[in-house]
Structure formats: C-alpha cells, structure tokens
Design a protein around this nucleic acid. Structure first.
Length: 207
DNA sequence: AGAACGATCGACT
DNA sequence: GTCGATCGTTCTA
C-alpha cells in the first residue's frame, strides 16, 4: 500500500502542514483500516517557536520524540485526559512537528464512532463534532502514548495521497473548498509566536 | 516533595 | 460566552 515516504516529512514544517491538507490519515487497528481526510493542521518549529514543546532545542523525556528522524509520530498527553497526534518534521535534530487537528472519517467510521461515543446514540451535534479537534482525532483512532514514536513509514499509522492507495474507491473531490490559514489555537502564552499564521484548514467557500 | 501548568473537551448559562 | 475535569510533565527547592 502506497504511503508518504520519510522524504515527505524531511522538510519545512510550515509547508508540510499545508501540504498535508486533503491527504488521508490511516490507522490499522486489529486488522481494520480506519481512515480520515486531514482537514486541519498546525506547524510547530523548535528552532524559533515559543509555542513548540522543544523551543530552543529543549530536550526532556517528553520532547525526545521530536528529536527523532522525520516521519515519526509524536503523541503527548494533555489536560489530564486527552492525547494529541503530531508528525515529526525537518531533518533529524531540528525538533519540529505538525499537529493533526481535524479529520473527516472516510473508512472504519463505525469503529471510530464506537471509540468516540461508545454505545451512546449518534446525534447531529455528535456528528458535527466527531473529529474536529486533536483530542477527538486521537480518541476516534485509538491513539495514545503507546503509539508515541511510531514510524509513519510502517503499516500501522501512515498518510497516503489517495484512497486508491489503500485499496478503497475514490470519493468525489470536494468542490468550492478553500485553504485558509490563521493563528494557532491555545498558545496565548507564546509571546510573538502567538500570532504566527501556522494553522491551516480546509473550509467550504462562503457564498 | 510539592506546585503549576497545559498544542482540550463538553456541559452549561 | 464561561468553567471545571483531570493527571502527566516539568520546574523549583
């Protein structure tokens, strides 16, 4: 099954965050493929970005993942309850990553629904908020600290360009969709980096 | 050892 | 819009 190679992640973090939009995040769980179209990302650059956990090359047990080669998963625990999924970017030793903030489910949706809500009934509100936040993405894909440091060139967690790459029928291309960018969420403490327009998302064009 | 904080979420006014 | 939940990580001493 075709997937993005390590070379894709070995480059400019902001550009990679932009280029990941519209690609498919794939998670193999108990033999089943769960997949979602990536619709929102954020870039974090250790070298110059006070919002990055590894700002100034700070190395701790947690941030050690960010110092790995590009193309590994950085998954950390936050607010006592949630996990966030990132992809390590840049040449090895430049601690940087792209946070995956939202996906649209395209395969394994029923398993994802169970992981998110258990047996609770589906509602319009739950559908709208199914995987539109980093904690929700990890919950829907059953990702936690056990998957930290996972190699994205393996077959358990990876990204591909098209659904055909994982043997699924293509879905019609999204129309009237525009790429937007703006400041990142939840980093008001990060001084000048607070305003960096390093959050990217796909949005239906307004009429 | 103790304290403060956090790349969030969902319930509620 | 506000606010509490909840705990690993990190820093201070």
């Amino acid at each position: 099954m075709a997937r993005l190679s390590r070379e894709f992640y070995n480059g400019d973090t902001v550009e990679i965050a932009r280029r990941l939009l519209g690609k498919y995040l794939v998670r193999r769980l108990d033999g089943e493929l769960l997949a979602g179209r990536i619709t929102e990302t954020e870039a974090y650059v250790g070298r110059c970005d006070k919002a990055c956990h590894a700002y100034g090359y700070k190395k701790t047990p947690r941030t050690s993942t960010l110092f790995m080669a590009p193309g590994h998963a950085y998954i950390y625990f936050i607010y006592g309850m949630y996990h966030c999924l990132n992809f390590v970017t840049e040449p090895e030793g430049e601690p940087s990553a792209v946070l995956i903030r939202a996906i649209q489910p395209v395969a394994g949706a029923d398993t994802m629904r169970r992981l998110r809500f258990g047996d609770a009934p589906m509602t319009a509100y739950r559908r709208k908020n199914f995987s539109n936040g980093p904690g929700k993405v990890c919950k829907a894909l059953s990702l936690s600290s056990s998957e930290n440091k996972m190699d994205l060139t393996g077959d358990t967690l990876f990204v591909c360009d098209t659904l055909a790459d994982i043997g699924l029928p293509e879905i019609p291309p999204a129309e009237h969709e525009i790429l937007r960018c703006g400041p990142r969420i939840g980093i008001d403490y990060a001084e000048e980096a607070r305003d960096f327009p390093w959050r990217f998302w796909l949005e239906k064009e307004e009429t």
